[in-house]
């Protein structure tokens, strides 16, 4: 099978969209935080916690959408902790974020052991099943690739439209963007920078957790340690790649996912037999860095990103 064949196959694009979905959720979450001026490095840990929380909730008997809600709530709680430390207390966002990732990851593994002390291999749940959209999924060519996905994937793409709409078409979005660019301008209008930033971090963290839950509730049907595997960090890069714009960030997520889907398939080609597979695993990251360098040089970083705001300070 040569590359051209891979790139035109419906199975390849279906995989790319599936791999992109959790990245899209978490990237939108991070984008909301950063647009409001807060770099959320807790993303990796929040995704781990979300993956576990959603899965264990379903395992305990909640419906799948209940699991998504539990993951979202878990993310919001962790986001509230991040927000509290980084916004009103104004602590270093790097330190708070990395600390939160370590805390959330360890807490998740600990909870796993407490809840399932005797288990050697994690139990399975019945995950979201693909739902072909009538009509669209029957479009010849790639119709089946894009429109035979799980409902959670459709939700990811709907979220991109929602985030873009809120950011660019509502007063709330305007306030969020202004808080990340010039908090003083927001305060001068009598709006609370603290409330806007806290809100953005809490909601954004909720979406990160749903990104994690996608792995356990849709992509797979169980929870493993290390299953998030650096996806959070990729999302941080995707926000930069997308120049803090939801649509561009989504395209970045799909591009990265396509590289990932491609390398898996290339491993099975004749070349794959000759080259160590680690080289293929590296490929998406390498190409991402390259794309990042090319795409993000002229990006406009939110001017007040990582700058704490203290009211009444000169």
């Amino acid at each position: 099978m040569d590359i051209f064949e891979i790139l035109t196959s419906a199975a390849f694009w279906a995989a790319a969209i599936r791999i992109a979905s959790p990245l899209i959720f978490a990237t939108m979450g991070e984008l909301i935080c950063e647009r409001a001026g807060v770099l959320n490095l807790g993303i990796e840990g929040i995704m781990v916690a979300g993956a576990f929380a959603g899965w264990i909730a379903v395992y305990m008997g909640l419906p799948l959408w209940g699991g998504v809600a539990v993951a979202f709530a878990t993310g919001m709680m962790l986001g509230a902790l991040h927000g509290l430390l980084s916004v009103p207390f104004g602590l270093s966002q790097h330190v708070v974020g990395i600390g939160l990732t370590l805390l959330a990851t360890s807490l998740t593994f600990y909870t796993y052991r407490v809840v399932l002390p005797e288990v050697s291999s994690p139990p399975k749940i019945t995950a979201f099943q693909p739902y072909p959209i009538p009509g669209l999924s029957e479009i010849p060519g790639l119709g089946s690739a894009f429109f035979t996905q799980t409902p959670l994937t459709y939700a990811a793409f709907a979220l991109v439209a929602l985030v873009a709409f809120v950011l660019y078409r509502t007063p709330l979005g305007l306030a969020v963007r202004a808080a990340g660019e010039s908090p003083a301008a927001v305060a001068a209008q009598g709006l609370s920078v603290t409330a806007i930033r806290m809100g953005a971090v809490i909601v954004g963290s909720g979406f990160m957790a749903v990104g994690g839950a996608f792995l356990t509730l849709s992509a797979f049907d169980s929870f493993f340690f290390d299953m998030v595997n650096g996806r959070g960090w990729i999302c941080i890069a995707l926000v930069v790649f997308g120049a803090w714009k939801p649509g561009k960030a989504m395209l970045g997520a799909i591009l990265f996912a396509a590289f990932d889907a491609l390398q898996i398939r290339l491993q099975q080609t004749p070349i794959g037999a000759l080259v160590p597979y680690q080289l293929f695993l590296m490929m998406p990251y390498l190409l991402s860095i390259l794309a990042l360098v090319l795409m993000s040089r002229r990006a406009e970083v939110p001017a007040a990103l990582m700058v704490p705001f203290n009211k009444g300070e000169r």
Partner: peptide
């Protein structure tokens, strides 16, 4: 107290709605 990445009208409208 203006946000540089917003347009003139966005800056003016900020906080009025």
């Amino acid at each position: 107290t203006l946000a540089g990445n917003l347009t003139v009208w966005e800056n003016i409208v900020l906080g009025t709605e």
